[in-house]
């Protein structure tokens, strides 16, 4: 009798029997293996490669060093990208979160069409960034775009909002806020529903007004969610650059470029791998710092040990 034959005839349990004799720790490592291989190969290894490449000299034959980083800091486009990224975070994150909180408070009450209102707020968050970008390209278009018609109605001149260095960033920020707020609304909504109703009832009995109740009860109780959403939103502002490819290509004259777009541009268009690796390493460092902050927050919220 061949091994194959016996294998086919034996019941499955017997076939897997040797597995049962493996001690628990070894078994745990075995089933972790695919995940560890995947995570290492496409995150840790490329990160290490990136750091290594970023330390190579700018020209061949040059010794290893921080030359690429010096080039990066001296590069005005890098500065623009970094400043733009920071502006994006500083402006869009608070607006997104404030709007999200307002939306959540509004749709947390009972009224006709509540489900529809929630849907209206959340749907943009579901769209591909490319889709959101095309929608706003349509809205901003100088000849037939609605935004320009509105400007004209208000007595202002038509303008190419995406084509001017002074207006392109605010125009893109609107898209970002529109796309992101709905998602954070959901987070706030979940948090609101966990606030005990008695708190508000007691405040109403004491004669507290709506705004007062929001300021003294709702807002403080939403603080943990706000902190959490803050980290996600800041990270998103570094990661989501897809709309640049459709809307501005980083232009006009690099006025709307962002770090990840700059990495793409230097790596795949200008073919400067060492330089791109330096900017990558810089961006990854920012995200790792955000991750560490996030983990500390998570740690407080849920015990992961």
């Amino acid at each position: 009798m061949t091994l194959e034959d016996s294998g086919f005839r034996l019941p499955r349990r017997r076939l897997l029997a040797p597995l049962g004799r493996i001690p628990d720790p070894v078994f745990a490592w075995l089933i972790l293996l695919p995940a560890l291989i995947g995570l290492s190969t496409f995150s840790i290894v490329p990160m290490a490669i990136g750091i290594w490449n970023s330390l190579q000299g700018a020209r061949s034959g040059e010794p290893m060093g921080l030359g690429q980083y010096q080039a990066m800091i001296g590069d005005p486009i890098f500065s623009t990208a970094l400043v733009n990224n920071l502006l994006f975070s500083v402006v869009t994150v608070p607006i997104s979160l404030a709007l999200a909180m307002l939306m959540a408070v509004l749709v947390n009450r009972r009224f006709h069409g509540r489900a529809l209102a929630r849907l209206a707020f959340f749907t943009p968050a579901m769209l591909p960034v490319v889709g959101a970008a095309s929608i706003w390209l349509f809205m901003y278009q100088p000849d037939f775009g609605v935004i320009n018609s509105l400007l004209e109605t208000l007595g202002l001149a038509r303008q190419n909002l995406l084509g001017q260095p002074s207006t392109v960033l605010p125009a893109l920020m609107v898209v970002m806020v529109w796309k992101e707020a709905g998602f954070f609304m959901l987070l706030y909504l979940a948090a609101l529903q966990s606030i005990p109703g008695e708190l508000n009832e007691a405040a109403v009995l004491e004669g507290a007004g709506g705004w007062y109740r929001f300021r003294r009860i709702t807002f403080p109780l939403l603080m943990p969610t706000t902190l959490f959403a803050l980290i996600i939103a800041v990270a998103n502002s570094f990661k989501h650059v897809d709309f640049l490819f459709v809307m501005t290509q980083g232009g006009p004259a690099n006025a709307s470029t962002l770090l990840l777009y700059h990495i793409w541009d230097t790596a795949f268009i200008q073919f400067r791998p060492g330089y791109a690796a330096a900017v990558s390493t810089f961006l990854v460092t920012i995200l790792v710092i955000l991750a560490v902050v996030q983990i500390r927050l998570l740690d407080r919220r849920i015990h992961y040990r």
Partner: peptide, 12 residues
Amino acid sequence: QLMIFPEILLLE
């Protein structure tokens, strides 16, 4: 790894 999406390590 929750923060570092493989997609941002473009070139590598």
